[in-house]
């Protein structure tokens, strides 16, 4: 099956964890990298679609960390690093347990917050970045909206960005 609406993630169950006290903000380690859902969606070319947001705009978290933060599958969280902040959905990781670590598949969402430091080794530091995770009530942006909101290349007045109409899930260009 090549087409999916969103990744299949296990359902988070309420954990009886005596040490898990609820927290506002979690201090975590961020890893980014490829994932089979991300790869399939990206190379098919469906980057404007909701599917891409569902496979890349997600943070795979340990269920215990999710319990601490009080979020369930597909709730949005704000992830902040020294390089930026981004809104993504929190989902239960299929590679758990990995408490203290989150994984965001590589893509425009992850790269808002990854480090461009190469330390003269040509390669940016995409893995092992300190971040904080907190709950958020904002929505995860679609790819085109995210690129516009973050990089603002063709935006005339930056203050109007939140009010602008969504660019949607299809390419927008003027036909001849």
């Amino acid at each position: 099956m090549t087409y999916i609406e969103k990744p299949v993630v296990p359902k988070v169950v309420k954990l009886e964890e005596p040490t898990a006290t609820e927290r506002e903000v979690l201090n975590m380690m961020l890893n980014t990298g490829s994932d089979i859902y991300q790869g399939a969606c990206k190379k098919r070319g469906s980057t404007c679609k909701d599917e891409y947001r569902k496979v890349c705009g997600v943070a795979y978290m340990d269920p215990k960390d999710m319990a601490r933060l009080g979020v369930s599958n597909w709730d949005t969280v704000k992830v902040t690093t020294d390089w930026g902040e981004v809104i993504v959905s929190a989902v239960h990781s299929r590679d758990a347990p990995h408490e203290g670590t989150i994984f965001i598949p590589k893509g425009p969402w992850a790269n808002v917050i990854t480090s461009h430091e190469t330390y003269c080794c040509c390669d940016p530091t995409y893995k092992g970045i300190y971040c904080t995770v907190e709950t958020s009530d904002e929505e995860v942006l679609l790819m085109a909206d995210l690129m516009r909101a973050v990089y603002k290349k063709y935006v005339v007045d930056e203050e109007t960005i939140p009010e602008l109409e969504s660019l949607g899930e299809m390419p927008v260009y003027k036909k001849k």
Binding site: T2, A40, C41, K43, R44, G45, S46, T47, C48, K49, K153, Y154, V155, V156, M170, P171, V172, Y173, K174, K175, K176
Partner: peptide
Amino acid sequence: SKVMEDMDQRLLVPMIRDENGELQ
């Protein structure tokens, strides 16, 4: 998934940005 690509997003025509920042 790569071979059976998404034709919705296939680039089919050459485009240039106009002065309003829209691809034409």
